[in-house]
Structure formats: C-alpha cells, structure tokens
Design a binder for these strands. Structure first.
Lengths: 178, 178, 178, 178
DNA sequence: CATGAATGAGCCTTCATTCAT
DNA sequence: GATGAATGAAGGCTCATTCAT
C-alpha cells in the first residue's frame, strides 16, 4: 500500500473534521499509523501537505467537469451540474467543509492563494461556457450569481441552518433554471 | 474610557484580520495596551471573549433590522435589505470575514453553537416575514434561497474571486427581485 | 458579624479540603463572599493568612490541654488524652488533614517554621508531664513513641488505608497503656 | 545515557526537596539539562511524571520486601524490617518526605489514588504475614498499629521535631517487639 | 523509506498582589 | 472597612520541525 497516499487520505479526513489549524500532525500520525518523520519525508511540512490535499481535490473537480459528455445542450449540462452538486453536497459534507474553511481562514488562505485562484478561475470558465450557450446577455454576472447561489447553499447547509430543506431547494433551483 | 469595551473592539478587529485561532491573546493585549490578566478578569477566557464579540455583532444585526420603518411594503423592504447588505459588505469586509470564518471552523463553531443558532433563526424570521408579504407561494424555500444568495456573494467576494463585480451583481439581484 | 473571623473560618475549611497551595485566594473570596482587597487588608498576604490559621488551631490545642482538670492521675489523664484524640480525629478529619499537610509541604513548612516548633514543643511538654508521672524510666523516648503512634494513626486513617478500623485500634491502644 | 531515566531521577529529587506542586517543570528541565518538550514526549504531562515516580518507588519497596530470605522466623523478619526501615529513614529522608507529602496533599493524593491503594495493600499484606506468624491473636490490628508507629516516627522525624532521638527510639521499638 | 527522540517557540491560563476609589 | 479593576510573573502544555539512526 502506498503510504504517501494513505497519509493524504487520512489527513484530508482529519483536516475536514477538525480544521487544518486544529489538527496536529501527531493526530494524523496516529490515525494513519505512521511516524512523524515520514510525513515530513513525503510532504516537507504541514503547509505543503495541505497544498497537496487541495490540489488533489481540485483535480477531482476538474475530472468531474471534463468527463461530462459534451453532446448535451447548455441547459442540460447546467441541470446536470446542479444535480451533481447536490449529490456531492450530501455525500461528502466534509469535502465542502474543508474547502470553505481553508478559504475563509486568513492563514490557510495565504498558503493556498495561487491554488485557490487557479481552481476558481477553472470553475468560473466551466460555468461561463454553459451560460454562454444558454443566454448570451450578461452571462458573466449570471455565472457569478449562479456560483454564489451554490456556494451559499453549501454554506448554509453545512454551517448555519439545522434541518436545511436541501431537496426542496434543489427543486426550486431546477425550476428556476429550466 | 471603558477598557472592557476597548478590548472587545480591538479583539474584534484582530480576530477578523487574522482569524480567531491564529490571534494570540498577547497580540490583543499589545494592540489594546492592556495586560493579559485584564482580559481574563473581564472575559474569563479566550473562548468567552469570542462569544462576547459574536453576541455584540448579533445585536448589531438585530438593531439594523428592527430599526427599519415598517411603513414600507414587502418589496420595498426587500430592496432596502439588499441595499444595506451590499453597503455593509463593502464598508466592513472584516465583519463578514470573521462571521463566516468562525462558523466554518469546527472548533469555533462549537464554541458559538447556541449563539449561531439564535442569530440565524432571527435572520430567517426577518427574511421570511418579508417574503410572506410578497409572494405567499413557497416563501420558506425562497427565503432560504435568498439568504443563500447573499451569503454566497459575500463568500465569493471575500474569499474566492478577485475583481468581484459587486455592483453589477447587486444590479442583477435588484432586477431579479423587482 | 466579624468579617475577619469569617474569612479565617472559610479559609481554614478550603485550605483543609484542597490544600493551601491549591486554594487560590479568589476561591476564599467567593466562598466567604468578600472582596480580594479585604483579605489583604486584614491579613496582609496569603502566607500570613495561613499563619493566622495555624496559630488559632494551636490555641485550640492548648486550650483543650489546659482545661483538663489536673485532679486526675497520670494514667487517667493519658487515657483521657487518647480518648479526646480519637474523638477529634473522627469529628474533624480536615483539621488533621490540613495540619499534617502544611507540615510535610516544604514551602508551607518554611512559612510556619517557628509556629510548628512552638506547638510541638508544647505538645511534647504536655505528654512528657503525663509520662513522667506514670513511669520514670525512659519517659522521653516513650513520649516520643506515643506521639508517633497517634500521628501515625492519623496519617494512616486520613491518607492511606480505606476502611481503617479506628475503633479497634483505639481499644488496642487503651489496652496497651493501661 | 537514557534521558527518560535521567529525567525520572532528577524529578524525584526535586519533587522531594521542594514538593511536587512547587517544582515547576522548568526547574526539572534545567536540572536535567533537557528541553521541556522532552518531558512531555516521555511522560505526557506533569501528573503522569509523578505517577511514574511513585510507581518506581513502589517497585523499590516491593523488591526490598521480596528479597528477604524467607528462611527466617517471624520475629527475626520483623526485627530485620525495623532495621531496614530506620536505615532507609536516615539514608534517604527525601524518599519519605516525598511519599508522605503526596499522600497528604489532596491534589496529588487524587492523582495517585489507585497507586497508593495498591502500594499500601501490599505493605499491609507483608506486615500481616509476619504478625500472623508471631502472634495469632489480633494480628490485623497489631499490624495496623505497627505500621502507624513507623509512619508516625517518620513523620515526626522529618517534619516536626528537631533533634529527634532516632536511635533511642529504634532501640525502644526493638525492645518492645522482641 | 521509516522511526522517534529531542528541541524551542509560543500559547492559554492562573494567581498573588497593588492601588485608586 | 471594603471593592474590584489592573498588573505581571510564572506555569503547564502543544506542536511543527529537525536529525541521527
């Protein structure tokens, strides 16, 4: 088994649950059953481990977007995007937790600055391409607003409201964009 | 001058800028020009200082909402709300920074659990009252979606996109809800 | 009500329960419902408060010993002493707890040095007087041994053995010295 | 050289001299010439360091008792026990100092609760075995009383009387139990 | 690749004490 | 007599990081 990969996975889980700053490397060691030295051997330092994690989640996002068959129309792809977003949000809450977390935290934000920019410009481009097809007028602002809606939903679902009516909201969103 | 209040203000500023976890009390002391002991004298511990800060920002939110003249129609009040939201977002970025931050961070989230719940239920009630007046059908979900939009905009503006076209987005939003 | 006296009593209780070093003055203040300033006003500092407590318990010991009617014979007075020792031990465990505690703790020992010496020489004199009457040969060593027995019993009863058979031990002691 | 062991020894010495609560870990570090971190690496925290010390002194006690050749009669073993007790008391005053200290101090007592119980039940068993051989009647109470005498002597010698006539008392004790 | 002993900087917190009122 | 704001020194503990093996 690839220990490097194993560390990566365990660290992702722990960082998501407890937050990056509040997860000591010692906790990662214990959970992954490896020595402290090995983490530094593979990742150089804690910040870099976080960067590696962030990179691999970006890759995931890219893959999902690229795999989409481009046979579909713009509206169809938009609906598919909404669908996979809500699916992912339910299946892997912690994934979003971590990502929102590190972006808002000034310290981690700094560590990941370039990677965040890279990822968000990719996402923007993807969404924009869809909106360009659907509705030429004002596609930029509408793309921004669409992304804001999704992010806001994730934020509210994860951090603010209990008993968030996720499904009703999804339905409403689909109605709106159809 | 009231030193307790002074500490509160200085701490709010620093926590917003650097994040709660990454702001040592020693930094607050230095900035506020008080001894460490005094903070504990007034606030018992660091967590409690955060709670006190969160409480006072909630109070601010409540005051803003209550002060609104209720002479206006639902739609007028909604537009006013949007307006004051964008105004606040520009004027006091750090205010939002801190609030999103502590909510997403698992550790601080726990510290503030009850206060967050209290505040968000207040906000929900306020928004809901407006939407009930405008459009009876599905007002709950629409309220959720509206809050998500605003939170998402703040999130994207603060943490994700550089050169965020805040004004265009505001215009688009106003168009949409008018 | 005499607040000075009240502080003295509350402090005695708390020091006994938690130990002198581990009882912050703030705890005394809270329990006695007085301000910090008042304690320093009356006792100058924490060490001195301890000295005042120790003095007053010495006075108690002296009083008990002096009050004994001197009409009795040596052996009778010895038995009476044993009796009142065991009585006191059961009634006021904390009294012994505190006294043994401060004597063994190097720091507190230093604070009370002169007072401890004073008290123990008084006790020695009292016991010696009794043993002199009973048995002239080797009364000094026997006095020491007798005191050691009592102190050892207190020590074992308080700090070491659970279910200490205090009454059987008392009987055995009486048998021995009769 | 084993640094863990070295820390243990240095800490034992310092805790004995100054008391556990009044010996900062920084003092141990300085005396042992190690970093603070190392203590926590090996012992997890200060309380646990104390436990480790207490455990190792218990082991010492056990070893001394077990090594005694069981060829001897009860009375011979009792005299030998007295002898080694007084020897130890003179040679290693601090050993007793620390042990009595931690038992009487409520805070440390709590930390060591289970270990104290374990040790004292071992001692009781050892003494009892001897007294059972010598004198069948009332061996339990007599064992308790014997232990009390020794503990009381240690207490008085260490903490109360200056110029304690240790040798005469030893002689008297031997006379008594012979 | 892998371990874990060792470091040191920094953090939160406690607490006796002072002093103005 | 009485209060409590304010201080500052000190302590226990955490944790990223280094390095010899």
């Amino acid at each position: 088994m690839d220990k490097r990969q194993h560390i990566l996975e365990v660290a992702t889980k722990l960082f998501s649950e407890r937050g990056f700053e509040k997860t000591p490397l010692s906790a990662v060691c214990e959970a992954a059953n490896v020595s402290k030295g090995l983490i530094f051997h593979h990742f150089k330092n804690k910040n870099n481990l976080l960067r590696e994690i962030f990179k691999s989640t970006t890759e995931l996002i890219v893959q999902i977007n690229e795999s989409k068959t481009n046979q579909l129309s713009g509206k169809e792809r938009l609906l598919e995007l909404i669908d996979s977003f809500f699916l992912q949000l339910e299946v892997d809450k912690l994934f979003f937790q971590l990502n929102l977390n590190v972006i808002l935290q000034p310290t981690t934000r700094e560590i990941l600055n370039d990677l965040i920019e890279e990822r968000s410009s990719f996402i923007m481009k993807s969404v924009r391409r869809i909106f360009n097809e659907i509705d030429l007028e004002n596609s930029l602002v509408k793309s921004y607003l669409f992304i804001a809606e999704l992010d806001g939903i994730a934020l509210n679902y994860l951090g603010i409201f209990e008993d968030y009516p996720l499904h009703e909201i999804k339905e409403e969103l689909i109605k709106k964009y159809n």
